[in-house]
């Protein structure tokens, strides 16, 4: 059913004039700088596919006809969908040139091969959300305003945002390296399978911590070092580091 729906949506999108840019790539990371409202999904393929659903009317830019937008680094749109895409060692780098060409908050959809990780950074008001699905390689995110939604991920990852909320649903918890989710003014909500092994570090000076896990709290000198604002402990006898922190909002750690 899901696939059918996706197919239909994609067909509709094609009719509506979706635009694509493809580039063959394998391994390394996809580095995204200042790209608005991105949806990234890993798939079984060997190309990175960037697409936007429908381009803005270019009425306002008649004066710019025949000219190309260019950014402060002198980079230009080499994809026709408002991005400058280039190889950067073993990585692939995409930078948004000027304002997003997408309509409303629809933004970019990007498909990446399963062998790739993600390094996303965004610092302005203009990106409302970042959605990442099905990615099993390392994810690194650093934003100021963007909400972050992760689905069917495994870690390792390090996510930080100043104003955004973070919501993450884990398919499993990769035991190779740490997972950290940090927000200053937003909430952090993580759902992990109930059998996941992890060493926890949860902290929210002004919020509350909620969980349905049975956390074994670390002891120092026989004293339980537990306050409701800061919890260090383990679930299922411990494992990889799972760090959830919010400055002012709640933290939710739930069984999936």
């Amino acid at each position: 059913m899901k696939y059918l729906l996706t197919t239909i949506i994609m067909c509709v999108a094609l009719i509506a004039g979706a635009q694509e840019y493809k580039v063959a790539h394998n391994g390394g990371k996809l580095i995204l700088e200042g790209v608005d409202d991105v949806k990234i999904e890993a798939y079984d393929g060997s190309e990175v596919i960037f697409s936007i659903n429908s381009k803005k009317d270019h009425k306002e830019s008649e004066r710019a006809a025949g000219l190309k937008p260019i950014n402060s680094l002198g980079l230009e749109d080499n994809t026709d969908i408002g991005l400058s895409v280039s190889k950067d060692g073993e990585n692939l780098k995409a930078i948004q040139i000027g304002q997003c060409m997408c309509r409303d908050n629809e933004g970019y959809t990007i498909k990446i091969p399963k062998s790739m990780g993600i390094d996303y950074s965004h610092s302005t008001y203009d990106s409302d959300h970042l959605r990442i699905k099905n990615v099993n390689k390392e994810i690194v995110v650093s934003t100021n305003y963007t909400n972050i939604n992760l689905e069917d991920v495994t870690g390792p990852m390090s996510i930080k945002t100043v104003y955004g909320d973070i919501e993450a649903k884990f398919a499993s918890l990769n035991q190779n390296s740490s997972v950290s989710l940090n927000s200053v003014y937003g909430f952090v909500d993580a759902a992990i399978p109930s059998t996941s092994k992890a060493r926890l570090n949860l902290r929210t000076p002004y919020g509350q911590i909620y969980t349905d896990f049975d956390i074994k709290v670390e002891t120092t000198d026989g004293m339980r070092s537990l306050t409701d604002k800061k919890i260090e402990g383990t679930v299922n006898n411990g494992g990889v580091d799972l760090i959830l922190k919010s400055g002012y909002e709640n933290i939710y750690l739930r069984k999936k």
């Binding site: 390392e138 740490s178 950290s180 570090n201 580091d241």
Partner: peptide, 11 residues
């Protein structure tokens, strides 16, 4: 090499 690896080391 990886960010989460270095964060783990710090832990």
């Amino acid at each position: 090499e990886s960010v989460s690896g270095r964060i783990e080391a710090l832990q």
